[in-house]
Structure formats: C-alpha cells, structure tokens
Simulated assay, not measured.
Amino acid sequence: MAYELTGKIKLIQETQTFNSGFTKREMVVTVEEGKYPQDINLEFVQDRISLLDPLQIGQEVTVTFDIRGREYNGRYFNNLVGWKIEAVSSSQESAPDQAYYSENPQPADFDDDIPF
C-alpha cells in the first residue's frame, strides 16, 4: 500500500553504500499538518536514490512511499521507503481548492425555512 506526504525538504543526506552493495540516501521533509510541524525521515534505496539529485533544501515536494517493518533482536523497526517524488508548484497548490468547489457547487435555491 502506498502512502503520500507533502512538505518542505529540510535535509538531503549523502548516499551511503554498504559492504553488501546496498545503497541508500535519506532525506527529511517537514510536514506542517497538525498542531506542530513534523520532521519525517524518508529513505530512497538502490536505483531510486537518483530521484533526489535535482532537489534542493526548502523546496516543497510530494513524496510517495511505502512503510517497511522488521524485527531485530526482539525490537521492531519501521522505515519509510520513498519511490516517487514530485516538486509542488504554486499552480498545483491552488488547484485542489478550485476542483473541490467546481465539483461541489452550493445549491442555487437554498432555503433557510426547513420544517425540522
């Protein structure tokens, strides 16, 4: 199952390569939903690390990711593994509101005299 979040890039780490040949690159995205901003760490692995190359700190992005979990020595760990990332443009930010209002128009003859 895929998940999605939108926020501003706070940090992009350097690529890490391990002895096994596994490579990963992590980034932190600050999400402004809820009462307090949340810094969310996401990792991109193997051929997906190149998705981070054109991005810059402070840029607003939408990241599509999967949640991976594993057990190690009786403890459980989760990772957010990104596989798609898109820069958010100012025209995209206003589009959802326009689409919502155009698809959900208010009734033309709204009557305040409802009998119940």
Rank of each mutant, 00 (worst) to 15 (best):
I40T: 10
D109W: 05
I9C: 07
Y100P: 02
E60R: 00
S89D: 14
K84M: 13
R25Y: 05
S91W: 04
T17F: 05
K84H: 12
S90K: 11
E86N: 09
F110A: 09
M1Y: 09
S94F: 08
D47V: 10
E32V: 11
L5Y: 03
M1T: 14
T15L: 11
A108N: 09
Q46C: 09
V45T: 08
E14D: 15
Q16Y: 13
N19G: 15
L55Y: 05
W83S: 06
A108Q: 11
L5H: 02
A87R: 12
P96I: 09
T62C: 14
V29Q: 00
K8A: 12
P107K: 07
F110L: 14
N79Y: 06
Q46F: 10
K8F: 05
E32C: 08
S94W: 09
E60T: 03
I114S: 10
K10S: 15
Q92I: 12
R68W: 12
S94Q: 14
D97I: 14
D109M: 07
D112H: 12
E93C: 05
R68F: 06
N73P: 00
R68Y: 05
L52R: 06
Y3G: 10
E86L: 13
D113Y: 09
V63K: 00
D39N: 14
D111E: 11
S94Y: 05
G82W: 02
D47Q: 10
E103C: 03
P96S: 06
Y76L: 03
I12Y: 02
Y72Q: 11
L55T: 06
I57H: 06
V31M: 03
E86I: 07
E14P: 07
W83H: 15
T17E: 11
Q46M: 14
L55H: 05
S89I: 09
V63I: 04
I12P: 02
T30S: 07
F65L: 00
M1H: 10
Q38M: 09
T6Y: 00
Y76A: 08
A95K: 10
S91D: 12
E71A: 08
P54T: 05
P37W: 00
I85C: 07
Y72R: 13
Q56M: 11
Q92D: 15
F116K: 07
N79V: 12
F116T: 03
P54A: 11
Y3V: 05
T23D: 00
N79F: 04
R25A: 02
I67K: 04
N78V: 12
E26L: 05
D47R: 09
Q106L: 14
L80D: 03
L52V: 11
S90D: 12
D66R: 10
R48F: 14
Y100L: 13
D112S: 11
T62R: 12
F65K: 00
S94L: 12
I57Y: 01
K35G: 07
S20H: 02
V29K: 00
E60L: 01
Q46G: 13
K24S: 01
D39F: 02
I57G: 06
P96N: 05
L42T: 00
E14N: 14
Y36W: 03
T6M: 06
K10L: 15
D111I: 04
F65R: 00
Y3L: 10
W83R: 07
E43A: 08
D39S: 07
P105C: 01
Q106P: 01
Q46P: 02
I114R: 13
G21V: 13
F18G: 01
K24N: 09
